[in-house]
């Protein structure tokens, strides 16, 4: 396999919010005495992303997928753990130091209606990062680059003076992708880039992302809850639940032989076209809000195979015979 591009070890992120009447006042230089609520978004995530691969992170709302993405990009500062980009540690850089990495890693956001500045034309949106990161370029060179960039994502260059509201959702998402590509990054984090789009438009954007990967040897961290897209697009899949990764495997392995009980339930819930598919495995309840630091396995409350050990001891990721890694006591004890 190729070299690891990003290595994440023991990543934790805790958000705290002050509750109560007192906590709602934000006075400068004054620390509220209200009770603080902690939200444990990430609880020790270990993950390696290799060069040129597409790693998909799947999981339900509130499992920490987006926090993971934002931590890698430096938009949220992790509470503990380390993130390495090639051989440099990047999780505690200041803005100035981070600038070097901003051009190597880029992000595409979920909602193309919100992530493009409505008061900037497409030309301004795309030329700003190019001119900023390449101060040596002349105005004409920047113009030329914007033009080729727009054409490469399938938008005609003569619409570069238009504003985002004049484009459709799929076109806007392609402009977002063009913006991410404008600084020629090595790594792109895409946080649910397709969820606001129709099936046919989804196909267009997904095709474009695959073309660009081939062209620039890009690595993707692709966050989604649409498993059909994952099956098609990913090389490897990480399944997340309540801030931890519970299964990590090659796409074909994961879809043919899901091991973790949560993965099994998740896969059975995909609405398939063929009517012969079995009924979905029903999970009781929904993802709980992680207001307490989880003790034991994070999935215990909804798992049909939980035993006393699952409530007390947190399972480690263990390598299985087919190359996947699973964190589950039931599998380790071959109860499953």
């Amino acid at each position: 396999m190729t070299h690891p591009l990003i290595q994440i070890s023991g990543l934790e992120k805790t958000f705290s919010s002050e509750t109560g009447w007192f906590g709602q006042w934000h006075l400068p230089g004054f620390k509220g005495r209200g009770k603080t609520d902690q939200i444990y978004a990430l609880n020790g995530v270990n993950l390696t992303i290799y060069q040129g691969e597409t790693l998909c992170v799947v999981g339900e709302t509130g499992c920490g997928k987006s926090t993971l993405a934002r931590s890698i990009m430096g938009l949220d500062e992790p509470s503990a753990g380390e993130i390495h980009y090639l051989d440099q540690r990047i999780d505690h850089l200041n803005n100035r130091q981070r600038m070097l990495f901003r051009r190597r890693m880029q992000m595409v956001f979920q909602n193309p209606y919100a992530s493009l500045n409505p008061r900037m034309t497409v030309y301004q949106t795309l030329s700003e990062p190019i001119a900023f990161h390449n101060p040596q370029l002349s105005r004409l060179d920047v113009d030329e680059q914007v033009e080729t960039l727009l054409e490469s994502v399938g938008i005609s260059a003569n619409s570069s003076d238009r504003y985002p509201h004049e484009f459709s959702g799929g076109q806007r998402q392609r402009i977002s992708l063009a913006r991410a590509l404008s600084v020629e990054p090595e790594f792109i984090v895409a946080d649910e880039p397709l969820s606001a789009l129709d099936v046919s438009v989804q196909a267009q954007v997904l095709n474009l992302m695959m073309d660009k990967q081939e062209e620039y040897n890009l690595s993707y961290l692709f966050i989604t809850h649409d498993l059909a897209v994952v099956e098609h697009f990913a090389n490897r899949v990480a399944v997340m639940y309540l801030g931890r990764i519970c299964e990590l495997a090659n796409t074909s392995t994961l879809f043919s032989a899901p091991k973790h009980p949560y993965t099994q339930a998740l896969l059975s819930a995909i609405p398939r076209l063929d009517s012969t598919a079995a009924d979905p495995i029903r999970l009781i309840g929904e993802v709980p809000t992680p207001t307490e630091k989880p003790i034991g396995c994070v999935f215990q409350a909804r798992c049909p195979y939980a035993n006393p050990r699952c409530y007390s001891e947190s399972p480690e990721m263990r390598l299985q015979s087919d190359g996947s890694s699973v964190a589950c006591h039931a599998i380790e004890e071959s109860r499953l």
Binding site: A203, N207, A228, V229, E231, H232
Partner: peptide, 15 residues
Amino acid sequence: ALPQMALPGQRLNQI
């Protein structure tokens, strides 16, 4: 256009 309709890793058939 559904991802299920194309082989994994292949281009999707877009309209």
